[in-house]
């Protein structure tokens, strides 16, 4: 009943950001990505395609920027091996560095307040959820995402992405999206759901390392670590603590400035849940 709803639940939503925001969080899923370990193999991206029923759109549409890769590996040529000489690198790939980029599950996500129909919202797991059925495709959320990590179904991709018998490989745990809706990385919410359900049935808490996302699972160098930030014993929480990176701030004040951890665009006060560890540059050794 709505009045009851107001009286009982409102105080929960009135809590300030310093007390952990508006939710009593059950979990706060987060990631730590060590860029020094990333070799740019794209296994994470491929695993994501397989796990999340992402459509393969074909060369032409990919070139047009209409691809659906929830996780993309960004390449930057920010450093040449011959930093001291002015000679052009022998291969164009020389000095490439890689950055796996997926939805950062921001705790003050800019995509959420702009959606006209509230199709995207924050879950008590600290996830930025997208409700496909509610989405009307105004694409405002994607425009307001500084990472550009939201992907729109520009066509009915499913019609051509999985010709027989490839449709047999679709993951039954989540839907196949039709044209006109926005989608993005969910931190493999179907795996989270399964793990939580299993833990509930066995009457215990979710264990760290019990499950992981498809990208973290596929990474050959274990560059991607996934876990619950609220569990102080989890690997991801330890990494964040070790790198002195905190949630809920827009600027990190580190005791040791040598620590490599950072969050992308955190100065925009969006509070991302993914920490990156900067690559150790060849030039700095």
């Amino acid at each position: 009943m709505s009045l009851q709803n107001i009286l009982e639940n409102w105080s929960k939503y009135r809590r300030g950001a310093e007390e952990g925001g508006h939710h009593k969080y059950e979990h706060r899923w987060g990631m730590a990505i060590n860029l020094d370990l990333c070799i740019g193999c794209n296994a994470c991206s491929t695993a994501c395609y397989a796990e999340n029923n992402l459509a393969v759109v074909g060369k032409e549409r990919f070139a047009k920027g209409q691809a659906m890769h929830w996780l993309r590996v960004e390449r930057y040529w920010d450093e040449s091996i011959n930093t001291t000489s002015s000679v052009a690198p022998e291969y164009p790939e020389e000095g490439a560095s890689f950055l796996p980029m997926m939805c950062q599950q921001c705790n003050s996500a800019t995509c959420e307040p702009v959606c006209p129909v509230a199709a995207t919202y924050h879950t008590p797991d600290g996830l930025n959820a997208q409700v496909y059925n509610r989405c009307i495709g105004s694409r405002y959320c994607s425009n307001n995402c500084p990472f550009r990590n939201r992907y729109f179904n520009f066509y009915s991709y499913y019609e051509s992405a999985w010709p027989e018998p490839m449709n047999q490989q679709l993951n039954p745990d989540l839907s196949v999206r039709d044209k006109g809706v926005m989608e993005k990385c969910t931190f493999c919410v179907q795996r989270i759901r399964a793990a939580k359900d299993k833990a509930k049935m066995e009457d215990r808490k979710v264990q760290d390392g019990e499950f992981t996302t498809a990208c973290a699972q596929a990474c050959p160098t274990s560059a991607i670590v996934f876990g619950d930030r609220l569990d102080p014993e989890s690997k991801v929480a330890k990494l964040w603590a070790q790198q002195e990176v905190k949630l809920g701030v827009y600027k990190q004040h580190k005791q040791n400035p040598e620590k490599r951890g950072y969050r992308i665009f955190e100065e925009l006060n969006i509070d991302p849940s993914v920490m990156y560890m900067e690559r150790v540059r060849d030039s700095s050794i």
Binding site: S2, N5, W10, Y13, N107, A109, E112, P113, A118, H122
Partner: peptide, 14 residues
């Protein structure tokens, strides 16, 4: 807004 609690996001009042 008071009954649509999905709406409050990002640290803002109901």
């Amino acid at each position: 807004q008071a009954t649509f609690l999905v709406q409050p996001q990002g640290g803002k009042p109901v």
